[in-house]
Design a binder for these strands. Structure first.
Lengths: 321, 321
DNA sequence: AAAACTTACGTAAGCGCTTTCACATATATC
DNA sequence: GATATATGTGAAAGCGCTTACGTAAGTTTT
């Protein structure tokens, strides 16, 4: 059996590479058959210069061919050595080196044109007889990749997967301990544990839940790895606070799931606005809040405002309507 | 405008290469995002070894992945250095080195499996949203290339093009001179000009055409570059002879077009068999005759049999029915 | 059993591209 | 006009593959 075929989409890069190799090898054979000193990889540069757009600078060519400029320099050397193109300094901008086709190059281009047409015919036949409009496929895929690059696509999938693995659970008495330790761990790392913190963290049921708020936890692989609190300010306003995720579980979407769940809960409770207090130094958190729709709210005061660390921070606001 | 897109099928190799680069770069980014020390190009080897087929020899792997064995060795070194695979000598065949996954490798494979699934999902999405079944396209194109490689396809097209450029014309008196010189040029190169040759070459009208034969010429770019004669032996049998193409026009399908035209003419004249006399040293000619359907006919005697050079040669025969 | 051939692997060198860095020249900013 | 920044190119090194060749081990032939 063919291992690469079994892999399907996973080996698509390998197989596409294999295909291009086979296509280019065909070009090499054709030039050799005709006893012409030319190589397929020179084609794009040579053809570009053989059109009326010549002369072009190194960088212009690199952009047009979507390769690095050293690649152009190296290919150009080959063609200059064979007298097919020549290079000279641009008078207007003396940093630039312009490449242009020579008469000998024009001659070869004329000789090669029918060969290229044969290549064209062979490729069209190949993809045609495979019943596929490969050009259209490539064009569309390029377009899609322009819209969003592969890295971003994969990372998005990874985040989705991670988010699914995070389970959100509501507060119950056995969580009192972990709520405190998670928050203290976080506070000690970034700030200091203050008087008011201690009261709130020790008695979440009384201070947070009883007045109409909530405490949520993120469970990953059976373990509680994060928490957040939703504090009721008034019937229409809730505050997202006390978000803490244990270092080992960070960047695994626990924070996002907690925030999303808290926002959903606030909406369910009839909130029209969710506010929060954060700090510029907490880059990841601020990024998350922005991404969830929170915007700067300079004039907003929060319950967290009373803490000393707030002087380094700022408020954000999310409109739920 | 996008030069590569303008080129269409001519730049298909460049664009496919660009696509694979973008796909692989996405993989690199994903591993970096997860802070995992792994590279996309290791995937096929690592995955192959992580399946139940392990252990495998270097060469077995190279075959499965369709790369050279040094490529396997080099990739394997990377993986061995990281403790993901190990290698040991095959006891049964001490030339072989077997590669197998290590426990640490299994661990990583388990960790990476969901990541690979994300890659899979992203690729499927990508090609799906481009509305194209890329896997199917690649599969078919590979199949087509297995049937006939690209080099052969292009060269076939080139030959077709060359054949179209060759014009076949029948004998007329002004050709008498060129018929003789083309043949003498050829004879001098390979053999010697003999008595009987001279008579035939000097008086084609009387010796060849009057008895029911014909003389054909190949014209390329306005110039006569080749000739052949069709000699009538009896009502059902004609002999293809005196095929000569000037050196500068060789490998340009003049010979093939001449032979094909002569055969067509023989068929038109009611022939059931075409015979010819050739020589083992004339590789290209013999190849052409074989390709046209001529087969060895050891017992056949030809009019050319009377020439001295025939003792190095042999007869071939084409059945027209 | 020796010799010739085949197979498997390792090493080296090459190729075509990239990234990185250095340097010259333009352009923008004060 | 001086200085900072941006741009264009070249040189070097690296990367991942290839081909070519050498060596060792196995297999077949004589």
């Amino acid at each position: 059996m063919d291992f690469l075929k079994e892999l399907g989409h996973l080996a698509i890069a390998s197989r596409m590479k294999g295909l291009t190799d086979r296509l280019l090898r065909g070009g090499t054979e054709a030039y050799r058959y005709l006893d012409i000193d030319f190589e397929p990889r020179w084609f794009t540069l040579f053809y570009l210069l053989s059109t009326e757009s010549s002369p072009l600078s190194i960088q212009q060519i690199a952009d047009a061919l979507k390769v690095s400029h050293p690649a152009v320099i190296q290919t150009a050397q080959m063609l200059v050595k064979r007298g097919l193109i020549r290079s000279y300094q641009d008078e207007a901008d003396r940093r630039k080196r312009l490449l242009a086709i020579t008469p000998k190059g024009r001659e070869l281009a004329a000789e090669l044109t029918p060969v290229w047409n044969c290549f064209l015919a062979a490729v069209s036949d190949l993809f045609g007889s495979a019943g596929a409009d490969m050009m259209e496929v490539i064009r569309k895929v390029e377009e899609e990749l322009d819209r969003e690059e592969m890295g971003s696509r994969i990372i998005r999938k990874i985040k989705e997967m991670q988010a699914k693995a995070v389970e959100i659970v509501e507060y119950s008495p056995e969580h009192r301990e972990v709520f405190r330790t998670l928050n203290e761990e976080w506070l000690k790392k970034y700030f200091a544990v203050e008087e008011d913190d201690i009261r709130l963290l020790r008695h979440p049921e009384e201070v947070i839940i009883a007045p109409g708020g909530a405490v949520l936890f993120a469970r990953l692989g059976g373990k509680i790895v994060g928490t957040t609190a939703l504090l009721k300010r008034d019937d229409e306003t809730y505050e997202l606070a006390k978000m803490a995720v244990t270092p080992g579980a960070q960047r695994k979407q626990a924070g996002r799931r907690l925030a999303e769940s808290a926002i959903a809960l606030a909406r369910q409770k009839g909130a029209k606005t969710v506010i929060l207090m954060t700090d510029n130094r907490l880059r990841a958190a601020v990024g998350l809040y922005r991404n969830l729709g929170f915007r700067l709210a300079p004039n907003e005061t929060t319950t967290s405002g009373k803490y000393a660390r707030a002087k380094f921070g700022f408020a954000m606001k999310l409109d739920l309507e």
